[in-house]
Amino acid sequence: MKAAHLRLAVVVIAVLVLAGGSLGYVWHARHRERPPQQAAADGSFTLDEPGLYFRDSATGRVARLPARGAPRVTGGPSCDRFYAAGERALCLRRLPGLPARTRALVLDRRLREVRGVTVPGIPNRARVSASGHLLSWTAFAVGDSYATSGFSTRTSVLDLRTGYLIKSIEDIPLTIGGARHHAPDVNYWGVTFARDDNRFYATVSTRGRTHLVEGDLRDWSAKALRENVECPSLSPDNTRIAFKKKVSDDPRAPWRLYVLDLAGMREHPLAESHSVDDQAAWLDDSTVGYALPGREGRTSDIWSVPADGTGEPRLLAAGGSSPVAVR
């Protein structure tokens, strides 16, 4: 009888130890993955003031640089990715817990929420059309870097004119080399919209190659234009695309910023010699902004460079990411 009780006690203790270990692992994972405290914008922080808006790395909130040399203004919403155009802004937040989820928040010019969508994955890319009618975001469903082979993306498009949400554009009929392309490994990311609120450009990855595609929302079709173009960003005049081009197999520095002239499909490198893993933003028709790993312990810094390939990079905002010029 005593032996039976002893065996029972041992089993109970083992179960408690295992359960405690499992709970400890879950708590540790969730604690480790918990994002910064989420906050709405302060009442006085809106998009009505022109300037460079960006995510402040120290606070995780959107900040603004009113003019060259002026101190940053804080008080925007908490976002992991941010973009704004027209009458709308898009704020991507990583939600706490596992598996990873992203909350895409549509904001008005006072940065108040008007709609929210939750999707699986880690926040990655955000764009708003010039009119503010179309929004797109990309989340990593697996992994967290384009430099690895084992990643999967989910790219959504939201039309605020109709309220229609395309949860994933992977099903859009795709043409590569003049032939309809079918493959199970198709991934899209980095949408950028044309001024007509119909055409868009994006990156598609399939069979080990990346392509710049031009999409048509009304016709629901996409065609590949050029290989080795990632994270395209259409210029305000809709004539050029800034993008990152893979120039090396070194995972520490695989990309370099380029600009592509859509009329002649000619490309040229920009004066930034560092590897840029970002979807660049046009600050005006002649200047491109982007984020690089930060210096002096900062997560990231925002730089700018002339779009014609001349000049040299200039530091705009230390400790920032997701730059967008608001006028």
Score class of each variant (00 low, 15 high):
295 R>K: 13
14 A>G: 13
141 A>F: 10
172 I>D: 01
298 R>N: 10
46 T>C: 06
273 S>A: 14
40 A>R: 05
147 A>T: 11
258 Y>L: 05
322 S>C: 11
236 P>V: 08
62 V>D: 01
111 L>T: 03
43 G>H: 05
213 V>M: 06
83 Y>A: 12
222 A>C: 01
155 T>E: 06
48 D>E: 11
214 E>G: 06
235 S>V: 05
16 L>T: 08
160 L>T: 12
277 D>F: 02
256 R>P: 00
30 R>K: 12
62 V>T: 02
132 G>W: 10
224 A>I: 01
250 D>P: 05
234 L>E: 01
11 V>F: 13
146 Y>S: 11
325 A>S: 14
222 A>E: 00
194 A>L: 10
127 R>T: 15
14 A>K: 11
160 L>S: 11
250 D>I: 09
80 D>K: 09
217 L>K: 00
234 L>C: 03
234 L>K: 02
23 L>A: 15
28 H>A: 13
119 V>K: 11
223 K>G: 03
18 L>C: 11
153 T>I: 04
194 A>G: 07
244 K>Y: 04
307 A>P: 05
302 I>M: 13
55 R>W: 02
182 H>Y: 11
213 V>D: 01
51 G>T: 01
11 V>D: 02
170 E>K: 15
237 D>E: 08
54 F>Q: 05
218 R>W: 07
247 V>A: 04
13 I>S: 13
43 G>D: 14
193 F>L: 07
247 V>N: 06
71 P>I: 06
98 L>I: 09
297 G>S: 10
234 L>G: 00
139 A>I: 06
180 R>A: 14
85 A>D: 09
95 L>R: 11
55 R>L: 14
284 D>N: 14
7 R>T: 12
209 R>H: 12
124 N>P: 02
81 R>E: 12
177 G>H: 07
167 K>P: 07
116 G>D: 07
313 P>S: 00
119 V>E: 08
48 D>G: 04
80 D>G: 15
202 A>K: 01
36 P>M: 10
83 Y>K: 02
91 C>Q: 01
79 C>I: 04
105 L>E: 10
99 P>M: 05
314 R>C: 03
25 Y>M: 14
173 P>R: 10
253 A>H: 06
241 I>Y: 02
235 S>I: 03
262 L>P: 11
77 P>K: 00
62 V>C: 03
290 Y>C: 04
232 P>L: 05
169 I>K: 03
225 L>E: 07
120 P>V: 03
303 W>D: 00
196 D>W: 11
59 T>G: 06
266 R>A: 13
298 R>S: 03
86 G>M: 10
114 V>M: 12
23 L>G: 15
204 V>E: 02
178 G>I: 11
189 W>Y: 14
6 L>R: 15
240 R>E: 04
175 T>G: 03
292 L>S: 09
327 R>V: 08
18 L>Y: 05
268 H>A: 12
252 R>P: 01
164 Y>G: 11
48 D>R: 12
212 L>I: 06
236 P>F: 04
145 S>D: 08
136 S>W: 00
204 V>H: 01
250 D>T: 07
288 V>A: 06
275 S>L: 07
27 W>D: 13
174 L>P: 02
296 E>K: 14
286 S>V: 01
4 A>Q: 15
24 G>I: 09
58 A>I: 06
61 R>V: 01
148 T>W: 09
311 G>A: 05
100 A>I: 06
20 G>Q: 13
47 L>A: 03
189 W>P: 00
318 A>C: 03
294 G>L: 08
127 R>I: 09
3 A>K: 15
